[in-house]
Amino acid sequence: MEKAKIQWGMTIDLDLCIGCQACTLACKQENNISFVSQKQAKMGRIIEWNQVIHTVKGEVPYTKLRFLPRLCNHCEQPACTKVCPVGATYKNPEGLVAQIYTRCIGCRFCTVACPYTARYFNWYTPEWPEEMKKSLNPDVYVRTKGVAEKCTFCSQRIRAAKDKAKDEERELRDGDVVPACVEICPTKARLFGNLADSESRVAKLSRSPRAFRLLAHLGTQPKVIYLSERAWNESE
């Protein structure tokens, strides 16, 4: 099959990330992700498609604290799609690992298969107080109990950008699609774009000597590319 001319990808500059978690909240607000009670939080049931992972190592004064925003890597060789018994998740022609909620049967194979633990399961129907329902995003489906979910690279924004480009009778340009986390980042550590276009900013950064992919040895070929000055050792 001929490869599509769009392969969506993201770069995250860890040297710029300060772990403020604005991206986490932007994602939650954009994608209608609810919050949980403190009790549920202790059971690990917070859903954060974009989670900032903090790692602490070393001793005073050589302490190291690192921040790593982890989201769905939209792998070229995803582990999650292969285990889905009903085809609810699949890799689309533009490289997105898509999730069709109404098709999901809630078996949770994918949440287990994902080596990045980027997938979440709705153990309960997501709830908001009546007042806060007003701030739900009409462009994003509110998931129900019993389905798996994860980062979509803000597919609603991709759709909107394509729609706009078609209206203006032009091709998509670099920078047309800006996911919520990229848009909000205070230090502008993130970029989103087309990896298949070798001139795009993300493609250029992906060739940087600072670039690396998370758990690359697994062969998943992630399309989220991290940048770091210091060598990143996952076992660290």
Binding site: N92, E94, L96, A98, I100, Y101, Y141, S155, Q156, R159
Partner: peptide
């Protein structure tokens, strides 16, 4: 014909 064309 991609699912994401219509499914949000």
């Amino acid at each position: 014909e991609d699912c994401l064309t219509c499914h949000k």
